[in-house]
Design a protein around this nucleic acid. Structure first.
Lengths: 166, 166
DNA sequence: AGAGATGAGTTGGAAAGACAGACCCAAAAA
DNA sequence: TTTTTGGGTCTGTCTTTCCAACTCATCTCT
């Protein structure tokens, strides 16, 4: 993104997140990274993205701390072999899983394909399916229809700050 | 989006969702709609988006069934007053709340601003805060680190189908 | 009644981003 | 030795975005 929203919206966490992952291919690259793909070739083959754009996106995600670029030696790595890189999710990147989960769930529910869900999320401890939901302080699920936004402390702090400038 | 991903990826629900809401301003418009904004002017003033793009985005979201365009009469609606429209979330649109919630939560956690969270999500029944999480069949929260993707039935059905074509 | 102001756009031109495909270089495989 | 593979860069075209100016019908103020 990196439009002016970044400074006109320092206050909105959604806008800040979109500045990191809102570009056209970013979320699909991150999805692939969750599926275990790591190399340039794997991303290109999977996405059919043009190589210049892929280069740009990978570099941007590395810069943003979502992916980590790691050297590796293909084929076991002889002594003088050329350095190659692959891309792995960082901690911040792995925390995007709920974003992907929410997108997946909405797509399966509201834009189904003819075959049924092609990927499901499971609890690795039990092997049983999981879903994305709002959860209250007591740990109980809250129906999405009963969730609403309220202004938080940061809004009032920011408002007091900027009002002082006027 | 509306690149070829739509047909190369009929199989991926995330790609299908991004075809609906992946354009540059779409999610911020939807965020504003959740905040209660409805008119062209409210969106423009809030986002600072250029008007031609706003027109295009609103029309696209209406076409996708995320927003509904409703006529209203300004100033109470005299007899021959010009028709005006505003935009409201549809049912499908309202179901995007978890997507926004996940983006909000990631931004607050990993890209904090100097003031603290400027908006918080609450249960309208209790007024208490809620958060986004993965939940198992038993209704208990599952740690994101213990969630993984598996291929679903749709993947195998699709694969059998396309293998038959070869 | 006339002079702005307002809401919801349309139009035109410049800049940025995406796309497709050709090309490149080093190492590994045949 | 030739070919293939991985990871790109470079070009040229096409699409999207951005910015600013303009429109047009109503509403408001004087």
């Amino acid at each position: 993104m990196s439009r002016k929203a970044a400074d006109s919206d320092p206050i909105c966490a959604i806008a800040r997140t979109l500045d990191v992952i809102g570009e056209r291919w970013s979320l699909l690259i991150i999805r692939d990274a969750f599926y275990g793909r790591t190399t340039f070739k794997e991303f290109r083959d999977s996405l059919g993205i043009s190589t210049d754009v892929l280069t740009a996106r990978l570099n941007a995600l590395v810069e943003q701390g979502i992916l980590e670029r790691r050297p590796y030696r293909p084929g076991g790595g002889g002594r003088g072999s050329r350095e190659r890189f692959d891309y792995h999710l960082t901690h911040d990147g792995r925390q995007l899983r709920p974003v992907l989960g929410a997108l997946l769930q909405w797509g399966n529910a509201h834009r189904p394909n003819d075959y049924g869900p092609s990927s499901v999320l499971v609890d690795t401890n039990t092997g049983r399916p999981v879903h994305i939901a709002f959860v209250g302080e007591d740990g109980n699920e809250v129906d999405t229809a009963h969730v609403d936004s309220e202004l938080g402390p940061g809004y009032y702090a920011w408002k007091a700050q900027t009002a002082a400038v006027d």
